Amino acid sequence: MTNDHTLAAELATAAGELLLRTREEHAGIDPKELKDLGDRVSHDFLMAELATARPDDAVLSEEGADDHARLSAQRVWIVDPLDGTREFSEAERDDWAVHVALWQGGELVAGAVGRPARGVTYSSAESEPAKGAAGNPLRLAVSRSRPPEFVTRLADHLGADLVEMGSAGVKAMSVLDGIADAYVHAGGQYEWDSAAPVAVARAHGLHTSRIDGSELLYNNENPYLPDLVVCRPEVADAVLEGIRAVED
């Protein structure tokens, strides 16, 4: 049987390929319709594949009804079928992703983040450290369209540069790629936004936590998980200290 790391990566990759075909075949339709179509086709694909490959496991998907039977399940797949719908709806953009993660017995145990338009899938099966070295000044990944005021204040405090990009998964993986040193989010998210990026980041030795430094916990009754830090381990203390300073 395919192991969970491999399955997560295969599903994220295949869903991404489906999304690329969907975007090509429906080029020119209304952007909102394209966003909705992408969400739907990827969700339906992932649900069908998981039902076949892991029929006894529960699933929490952004695009599906939340079945609270997952709260008593030992294994729960947490998926975001299309992370970054806005970017997906713009033909020239490649900064969108597919998230597939597995929670088991209280922990994230496997995950994959697919970047279909780049032909790359990041996986928890691998453990290489982040590329390069921490920047001087530090580099914080932020949204292109709406950089949060909190992160702007943090950048000012740290003397850091802001690196603009799209979806949450892309921003988290930018730390692994050495493009950014940290991704700090405090504007509201759900478990499917961060589960797969966090599973991959942890496997590669990155620091992951809430903005107060506490542990990120998944498969909660309320899947709202509003804040997140993913960063190079060597800058974690400075980033968390900076967060405390701008919150005071």
Rank of each mutant, 00 (worst) to 15 (best):
K35M: 15
Q104K: 12
A117D: 10
E92R: 12
D161T: 10
V229D: 07
D94G: 10
R23C: 11
E241K: 12
A172Q: 11
E191R: 03
P233T: 04
G64I: 11
P81L: 09
L154V: 00
V246G: 02
G242Q: 10
P226G: 05
L46F: 05
R118W: 06
L20V: 14
E24H: 10
N136V: 11
H185L: 11
G16H: 07
A73S: 12
L18G: 01
V175D: 06
V100G: 05
T2M: 12
E92A: 14
A199C: 01
T2V: 12
E10F: 02
S214I: 00
E247Q: 12
L108H: 01
G135T: 03
H207R: 14
H43Q: 14
R153Y: 04
F88M: 06
L108Y: 07
L34W: 00
G114N: 09
G166M: 02
A48K: 14
Q74H: 13
P55A: 09
H185G: 04
Y218G: 05
T152F: 02
A245I: 00
M173T: 08
L240N: 02
Q189L: 15
A236E: 01
R115Q: 14
L138C: 10
L71R: 05
R23H: 07
L46M: 07
R146W: 11
L46I: 14
S167A: 15
R23L: 13
W192V: 14
T52P: 00
E49Q: 14
D67V: 01
A168E: 07
A14L: 13
D67G: 04
V175L: 00
A168K: 09
G16S: 11
